[in-house]
Nucleic acid binder design. Structure first.
Lengths: 252, 252
DNA sequence: CGCACACTGTGTACGGCACACGCAGACCAT
DNA sequence: ATGGTCTGCGTGTGCCGTACACAGTGTGCG
């Protein structure tokens, strides 16, 4: 384990709870969890753009530089925020026997987390996750394919595919929140504006397909657009994975 | 058309070439295309993080504030950069009769553009595209489904799905470039480091699926990982769309 | 018991950033 | 010529991330 502590960046050490043991020097006045919670609170209230080192520190009643004892850069702060915002995934319902139900539940849970914290989609991340709760999510995603004939590589790719899909479609559907200020126009308004502008610009000669799509009202009509669209596209993705499963199933 | 000019933001007006007509005042010393090209050059050489208003202006031999006559914010600059970096899509090869071949070519072209300009994935965008060349891409994506029984909504969703997939998988595959500095370690090294750390942290009791995946060597082995993985996942996505097409096909 | 030292939070400072604002001059339609 | 309008420029503001030196604090070891 000491090898772990040696090589991992400090934030990961703290996130994995290596901080428990007694050490010389003053007792820490802050904690990773506290910093993460404060940053998440700020992002929830005022957008990711409002999250600055000084703002987070002020929220906690400390000075800016204190944070650097726990988080060595802004990027590290982002890691902590993601860890805090996603939280631990709900334990799997073992009664869901089918892989489709399991992975659907997983995908929906991710979407819900993003809906709770829209700024998650704007967080710039530069490496795959290694933090504990993120690994819990990964574990749950992979385990959804248990019982299928998919290989390890297949499962990883499929999980990534579903994750990619959820993030992407949520981003498109939510027509991303502006980060620096609250907007007075709703998402629907934004869609309307977009549809109108697209109608203006989509010259039927140069853009026949776009024009016909616009004319068909695809962009303007929306009922419970978000959820319907999500389920619809997810079904398409899962159908693709299902065909992969069939391909992997040995024919008797 | 004057209604167009009235309501559209300035950048879009310029991008659509409304700037042609004669107007009072001095001749503009800059152009949208020139600004975009300069910004793209900087991003290619030094990463997206190196793109600042002052840096772009310096590249052009002008002062920082001159840019704001053409681009009203940093976000607008991003729009111009994307427009420049993607360029116009190659004209469709009408000989590709099948929708699968057409959308595959489209997806591959997008991936190639991203490979040419990796920073494209880091560009924060807050609204769907309305710039001319981006609409060309959209047109081509939609037209790939001509001849299928898919509805307008279906085609839009399918195109978005493929686009999402390409962006997502490319991001994962390229284990995103660090933006502020050149890295001495290659992508493979980064993968190796990740695999080793994951092996350290993936306690088989808490993370059985991850552990078994790691042990199966999924993370460490990679041949021509990028392309294989891309084609593989794309096939899965297209299989899903194909099942949708079957569903839409009326049974005689 | 006391001491060295690792570790804590803090203050100051720096360079860079996006952008507001006001200005002087260039060019057009009249 | 002349008025209005648009160009590019210079100055200035507030914020950002973070490097660095410093003083206080508590622990484990001698």
């Amino acid at each position: 384990m000491e090898e772990t502590a040696e090589k991992l960046p400090r934030v990961l050490q703290l996130l994995w709870g290596v901080e428990g043991l007694a050490r010389p020097g003053p007792k820490p006045g802050l904690s990773i969890a506290g910093i993460g919670a404060a940053a998440v609170k700020i992002a929830d209230e005022a957008g990711l753009g409002a999250v600055s080192m000084s703002r987070v520190a002020a929220e906690l009643g400390f000075t800016t530089m204190s944070l650097y004892r726990y988080v060595s850069s802004k990027n590290d702060l982002y890691v902590v925020m993601v860890e805090e915002a996603f939280g631990k995934p709900e334990p799997v319902d073992v009664a869901r026997t089918g892989w489709r139900e399991r992975i659907t539940a997983w995908a929906t849970a991710i979407r819900d987390a993003i809906h709770r914290h829209p700024w998650l989609l704007q967080v710039p991340l530069f490496e795959p996750p290694l933090s504990p709760k993120q690994l819990d999510w990964m574990e749950q995603g992979l385990s959804a394919f248990e019982g299928t004939p998919l290989t390890g590589q297949d499962r990883l790719s499929s999980m990534v595919l579903v994750n990619i899909y959820v993030r992407g479609v949520t981003q498109v559907t939510m027509s991303v929140f502006v980060n620096n200020q609250a907007i007075d126009q709703t998402d629907q308004d934004a869609d309307q504006i977009y549809a109108r502008r697209l109608a203006l610009l989509a010259d039927p000669e140069r853009f026949p397909s776009i024009a016909s799509t616009v004319l068909s009202g695809t962009f303007t009509e929306d009922g419970d657009f978000g959820n319907d669209e999500f389920q619809f596209g997810l079904r398409t993705v899962l159908d693709g994975i299902e065909s992969l499963i069939h391909r992997r199933t040995p024919t008797p």
